[in-house]
Structure formats: structure tokens, C-alpha cells
Write a protein that binds this DNA or RNA. Structure first.
Lengths: 199, 199
DNA sequence: CGCTATCTGATAGCGCCACTATCTATGATG
DNA sequence: CATCATAGATAGTGGCGCTATCAGATAGCG
């Protein structure tokens, strides 16, 4: 962690500046180190952009912010993936997403970034000729619900607001990476059992 | 989808060149369009790099390749995230991953990219002060296993090798995005029930 | 007290990556 | 036949995450 990098983060608003003890000497505390670790985790493991991290950190640091909107902020920053034009079957995909939300009774506003990114992914699947993937969407949703329930339990253990908020962010962002890796391990296992030659 | 972009993909080896009917006229078929859609899906939704897509496509196009290694190739390209130095508790995290694999009876080689990226994520969680996250790892693994099983069933429906391989790639890469979005929707729902004010 | 090493803040630059603009030669097209 | 689009090649662009450099100021040592 080089000094110029740290100063770059300060400039970018990711890290509060150190307390100046003299015009050319600043002192940094444990909170700075902690914040740096958070930044690196979101950057390296979570794959967020610097701008995205700024948004998340502002949400964390704003004590007026309702708790459950901070989760939204974190989630939104991870998913800046609505490139795909609208020429394609995105409208139909949106409808399917709305139906799923309805069927699940999820309290989500349609048009939320998560819903939008799900629609994008489904539309992409359709375009690539894997529309049948939608058939197993329910199994995915089951698993997601299960994971989300556990996540919430975990997060609820925190008491201090700041810790809670950070838990939410970390859990959301790094949880994705954890699950993706686990899913991959399970794939390798399952694939090996079905197609593999190692008996 | 501009012409120069397509020519760029050809240069990069993502797309086979069109058949030349004359020195300044090439004809592209449905397979080219399909391939382009695949490229865009992996790029926009899957978040792969061009180099990563090249690796995946080479794996798809190589008929000698054992099926279950193609999945590995796709998986490896999605997860180029072992930045985080080794000064941290990565060794301990690796041990925890090995134990998890052992406990699950997963047929995975230790040190696989997925295992490595899981270890990285766990180490990052530890560093950020969320080592307790490991407690809910089993619930994550359960969900991952469940999803992986469904994925394999879905994929096994394909008969032609080429289609099967593409299913695997698409399912692996875009499946991540689908699950992440679903998890986020479920989070919003769960969070709203616990912390929200909308009754 | 002087001298060098080190820190701060500011500005400009670098390297990578996914394109994109421009150029020439060539043949399609009205 | 004149114009215009296309192939292929080379060079350039813009965004992003840093990184190098510079002046000014002071800490710390002899």
C-alpha cells in the first residue's frame, strides 16, 4: 500500500485525510487502516470501481440514512451492468422479473437496479439461445432467499449502527464473491461426477 | 454493434473472419451473429475481459477438450481476483477452504482457482473484521450445491457437444449475475421486513 | 545551527483496456 | 464510369486506477 495510492484515495474521497500535526505531518489512526482494508476488499474482491466505493462509503458515513437504503446503495454499486441496449427482449424479461417478484411476494419496487440487472441477464440468456434457463429460475430464487435469510441473521448480530452498515456492505459485496466461488467448486464437483473420468 | 468493433473482435480472435467472396467483400452467417451475441453477453453481463473471452472461446472451439475442463476454463476466466498479497491470513483461509472441501466431499483439487478465490474472499472478510462470516459459510455452501445440481441438470439436457459446452459457459458466467441479482432482491425484501418502515 | 531526508499537497503522466478514427486499395453498385 | 462501401492495417482515444515528479516545509541528526 504505497503512500501515493493512499493520497489518491484521500483525493477521491474514499479516505478521510489524516489529522495535520504540522503543515507537513499528518497522523493516521486505526480507523484509517480499517477504512483502507475496506477499500481494498471492495476493490479487489468485490470488483467495485473507485467511484462506486465512494458512493458506498458516503452511504456508510451518512448517519441520517435509513439502514435498509444503505444496502440498496451497496447493491447498486456492484451492478452497473445495464449496457445492453433495449432493442432486445428486455421488455419481456422485465415482465418475467415482475412476475417472479409477484409470485415470491418480495417487497421490492419494480425497476430497482437489482430487478433491472436480473432482467438484463435474462434477456441476454434469451438472446444467446438459452431461454430455457428461465425454467430453473425458481431453484435459483429459492437458494437466493435462503442465503438472504442467513445474511440478515448474521447482520442483525451487530449492534452499533456503523458496524451494522459495514456488515451489510461487506456481506453484500464480498458475499457475492464467496457464493460465486462456492458455486464454482460445486460445479466442478458435480461436473466431475457426471462427465469426469476420475472415478 | 459497429463494424470496426466487429473487426476488432476478429483481430482479437473472438470471432472467426467472414468468408471472403472477393478481396473486399466478406460474408457473415448466422453463426457469426450468434457468436457476437455470446461475446456481448460474456462482456456486458458476465464482466469477462476480452482476453478471458478468448480463452473461453478457444476452449469451446477445441473439440479435443474434455467437457468438464471447459467449465473450468470458463470459471477461471471469471475469477481473476487473487490480487491481495499473501501477507494477510490467506494461508489460514486456504486451510479453512480445504476443510470445507473435505467436509463436503467435493471432488475438487485444492489450489483450484475457485478454491483460491474463495480463500481470498474469506481472508478479506477476516481482515475487514468479519471473520464471523465463516459461521454462515455452510449455509452458503448448501445453497451453492443446490444451485450447482440444478445447473448440471439443465446443462445435461443438451445433446450436441457444442451446445453443451456453450450452455456450461453461459450458465456459469451469466448464472453468477442472475444469482447475484436474485440475492439482492431477496436482501431488499428481507431487509425491508426487518428494518424497513413500509409495513 | 545547518543539512539532509522525509512528508504534504498539487499537477501531470503512465499503462492497460475496450474500442474507434483514419488511411489505402479494391471492387460493388447505380 | 463515377461514386461509394468494404476489407485490412495502423494509429489514436477515453476512462480508470494508480504513479512519478515537483515545490515547499519541517523533523531529526550531528
Amino acid at each position: 500500500m504505497s503512500v501515493p495510492t493512499i493520497k489518491f484515495y484521500v483525493r477521491e474521497g474514499l479516505l478521510p485525510p489524516g489529522e495535520l500535526t504540522s503543515p507537513n505531518q499528518a497522523s493516521y489512526g486505526e480507523t484509517h487502516v480499517q477504512r483502507l482494508r475496506l477499500i481494498r476488499a471492495l476493490l479487489d474482491v468485490g470488483g467495485l470501481s473507485v467511484a462506486g466505493i465512494r458512493g458506498v462509503i458516503e452511504a456508510i458515513d451518512d448517519p441520517r440514512r435509513p439502514l435498509h437504503t444503505v444496502l440498496g446503495e451497496a447493491a447498486d454499486q456492484v451492478v452497473p451492468r445495464y449496457e445492453r441496449g433495449d432493442g432486445s427482449g428486455i421488455a419481456e424479461a422485465r415482465k418475467r422479473v415482475a412476475e417472479l417478484i409477484e409470485a415470491r411476494g418480495w417487497r421490492t419496487y419494480e425497476g430497482s437496479p437489482a430487478a433491472e440487472s436480473l432482467a438484463t441477464a435474462l434477456a441476454a440468456l434469451e438472446e444467446v439461445g438459452h431461454g430455457r434457463f428461465a425454467e430453473i429460475l425458481d431453484a435459483y430464487a429459492d437458494a437466493a432467499e435462503r442465503v438472504a435469510r442467513v445474511d440478515l441473521e448474521y447482520v442483525a448480530h451487530q449492534v452499533a449502527r456503523e458496524e451494522l452498515v459495514e456488515s451489510v456492505v461487506v456481506g453484500t459485496v464480498i458475499g457475492d464473491a464467496v457464493f460465486a466461488a462456492l458455486r464454482r467448486l460445486a460445479h466442478v464437483d458435480a461436473s466431475d461426477r457426471v462427465f469426469g473420468e476420475t472415478p
